[in-house]
């Protein structure tokens, strides 16, 4: 994940804005690693959290081009070390009677929850850091994963005693 950066993009909550943002990435040849979008506490705005693959192109150019979109209000780059990142995963896994106990143990260790139970399957929910989700997925894989869905990460700056190192890109070029 070294070459990934998190952009927290505040946009106007209007029709077509997500298409403009996503379209810009494909139009300019940038790669999106993950993307999550939802309204903020102010219903005029939504926040798009984009994890970008900066090996495809420099982050500075991506943020500058993004900021040219009229509906983009503010862009904040969150450094992984200085932000709180969380992601949610839903995962349906084979759970034959013999394996079910082991699976539930793992779910407990990872502080996940069983949210659906079938005859020979369970659906598990786990929220956490992306790395924790990766570990969980790896440990459960041998049992047989039937379906898996991750949300893509959301992030906010980490609160520290000193001011968070939060680099606002907007209008700071010259």
């Amino acid at each position: 994940m070294a070459s990934h950066h998190i952009l927290s993009v505040l946009v106007e909550n209007r029709a077509g804005v997500l298409a403009r943002v996503a379209g810009l990435f494909s139009q300019r040849g940038y790669n999106i690693y993950s993307l999550a979008v939802a309204p903020t506490d102010d219903d005029r705005f939504s926040r798009i959290t984009i994890v970008v693959d900066v090996e495809s192109s420099p982050l500075e150019q991506i943020t500058k081009q993004l900021f040219k979109l009229v509906n983009v209000v503010k862009i904040t780059e969150l450094h992984p070390d200085e932000s709180v990142e969380r992601e949610l995963m839903l995962l349906t896994i084979k759970a034959e009677p013999g394996a079910r106990g082991q699976i539930m143990e793992l779910v407990q260790v990872f502080e996940g929850r069983i949210v659906g139970v079938g005859h020979d399957q369970v659906t598990v929910m786990l929220a956490g850091t992306p790395a924790k989700l990766d570990d969980f997925e790896e440990l459960l894989r041998p049992y047989g994963i039937d379906e898996l869905q991750r949300t893509g990460r959301v992030a906010l700056p980490k609160l520290e005693r000193q001011a968070p190192k939060l680099r606002t890109v907007k209008g700071k070029v010259s």
Binding site: P58, E60, Q61, K64, Q65, F67, K68, G171, V173, S174
Partner: peptide, 18 residues
């Protein structure tokens, strides 16, 4: 006037948006 032009192709020694 377009900040995205500065450094897009060649990194300037003195970038001026305006």
């Amino acid at each position: 006037i377009d900040p995205a032009e500065l450094g897009k192709v060649r990194r300037p020694d003195v970038p001026i948006v305006g």
